[in-house]
């Protein structure tokens, strides 16, 4: 019974990604996040809008290839968006630049796009952690502060901060897996 229900649900979403209502729901759930990804990768609102549009067009064209049993919809859309952003960056590198356009103040030129995409995904994962876990990971790992200092700021023993680091990393891994992360493959 449960299996049948699962299968029905899966079938519904496979068949109906080609359907506007399902795709609109996907936009409501993930559009903002995809836009943020595209905007931060491309550094330009107009190009980010185009990238999100292209992501949904490709999703619609490839609807029959989407298998909800293999990946979550978010993961699938994210992967498409990532490819769109990479294509857009390559296309821009190959195109004459508009003379009056702002110089590209993009992170893209500061560090390779792949690294940026990993960073953006990590930030999204951090946002999904509890405040307690996020804080210790950000302060100690990203802002390079000693655990003792962070413990003093929070008014907790340093052992507590260390525990939170450990459980924070575990929680982060779970969140990343839910997001379809395959960082260690």
């Amino acid at each position: 019974m449960r299996l049948r229900r699962l299968r029905q649900r899966a079938d519904q979403s496979v068949g109906s990604l080609a359907d506007d209502t399902v795709l609109r729901a996907a936009y409501d759930d993930h559009g903002s996040e995809l836009f943020a990804l595209a905007y931060r990768s491309l550094g330009d609102r107009g190009r980010a809008e185009e990238a999100v549009q292209e992501t949904f067009l490709r999703a619609w064209r490839g609807a029959d290839r989407y298998d909800p049993q293999r990946s979550a919809l978010r993961t699938w859309l994210y992967a498409i968006c990532r490819n769109v952003v990479i294509d857009a960056s390559r296309a821009r590198a190959a195109r004459p630049r508009m003379a009056d356009a702002e110089p590209p103040d993009l992170p893209v030129v500061e560090r390779p796009l792949e690294q940026l995409l990993v960073g953006l995904q990590m930030e999204e994962a951090l946002r999904r952690l509890s405040e307690q876990h996020r804080l210790v990971l950000v302060e100690i790992h990203l802002r390079d502060r000693p655990a003792g200092e962070v413990a003093a700021q929070l008014g907790v023993p340093v052992g507590t901060v260390r525990s939170r680091v450990y459980y924070g990393l575990k929680a982060l891994r779970l969140v990343l897996e839910e997001m379809g992360w395959h960082g260690d493959q």
Partner: peptide
């Protein structure tokens, strides 16, 4: 946990506190 920590290094703490750009 090691690959998680390695990838986490790519996160930018300043970007994390900025509001997300909205479409």
């Amino acid at each position: 946990l090691s690959p998680v920590a390695a990838a986490l290094s790519e996160a930018d703490p300043d970007r994390l506190t900025e509001p997300l750009p909205l479409p």
